[in-house]
Design a protein around this nucleic acid. Structure first.
Ligand SMILES: [Mn+2]
Ligand SMILES: [Mn+2]
Ligand SMILES: [Zn+2]
Ligand SMILES: [Zn+2]
Lengths: 140, 140
DNA sequence: TATTTATTGCAACAATGTTGCAATAGACAA
DNA sequence: TTGTCTATTGCAACATTGTTGCAATAAATA
């Protein structure tokens, strides 16, 4: 999931259409990379001259989730965020003062914990969510 | 934060009132310990013969959060959950099939990661959220 | 250009959460 | 027990996020 044109192609090969809104939304998610909410995406669409109904944005987000092009992330502000699925699994550092977000790659520490969880609780971990909250370099 | 009566006492000492709804909500959160939503709490209140307005439940949850008696947790179903602050910091194993929730204590692995984050990114971690999703013992 | 149907917009709805304001009921003193 | 003070509550009204059915529109292809 590296190049935006690969994504466009894959969508067409699957028998779907490359509409203006679809292309623009993927473009927006690609440009920003990290944590955009549905309403933010809608705002950016209209800034770029494309107005889309709320329904359309949600349906498109559903479509992109199904195609595994984006993923959903919920952080501690009761909004749902979306971002392009990147090759490297990562987590987020959310600054509680300026609301900035950095990404962080964590190695395989969690994998080991998940093995331990399986042995201890017989619970098979398939996914996890991990976000850190605190103060960024500028805000401390 | 071990005994429910300690909590009642602390609330009174802080100049607040022990109303029926307040006592009942704390009782409900204490009895269940783990992950109750606002609407679930409201349902349990009315089952126990106490009807409370939605507004009241949210305001009380806000109060209990401020007093650090409960904490908020968001898992991947777009609801906000609440649970009593327990002495032992823990995470959750959420079964995506039967929706059951288990608690899991993880030692200090994350603490070490947080030190690393500070050294690497100069980001001071103050809190984190970590939940695991997968299949419980019965559902695999 | 005509045809097919995936996609879109609109209306209507549901769930969660918030605010202002007047009424109610805990706590405490008399 | 009764009266007073004000923290708490309920109600109405609203905001935001998210969903569904249905008719209109516009990509893709022949
Ligand atoms: Mn990210
Ligand atoms: Mn718990
Ligand atoms: Zn910051
Ligand atoms: Zn299960």
């Amino acid at each position: 999931m590296l190049d935006i044109d690969n994504i466009f192609e894959k969508i067409k090969l699957d028998g779907h259409r490359l509409t203006k809104i679809r292309k623009a939304m993927i473009g927006i998610l690609f440009a920003d990379k990290c944590l955009l909410s549905a309403s933010e995406i809608r705002t950016r669409l209209s800034v770029s001259g494309l107005s889309a109904d709320r329904t359309t944005v949600y349906r498109e987000l559903g479509f992109l989730l199904e195609k595994n092009i984006i993923k959903e992330i919920r952080i501690a502000d009761r909004k749902t965020y979306y971002e392009i699925v990147s090759p490297e699994h990562h987590h987020h550092l959310v600054c509680t003062k300026c609301n900035s977000v950095q990404e962080i790659v964590m190695g395989n520490h969690l994998k080991r914990q998940e093995d331990r969880i399986y042995k201890k609780a017989r619970f098979k971990v398939l996914a996890h969510s991990l976000e850190f909250y605190g103060l960024c370099r500028n805000c401390r």
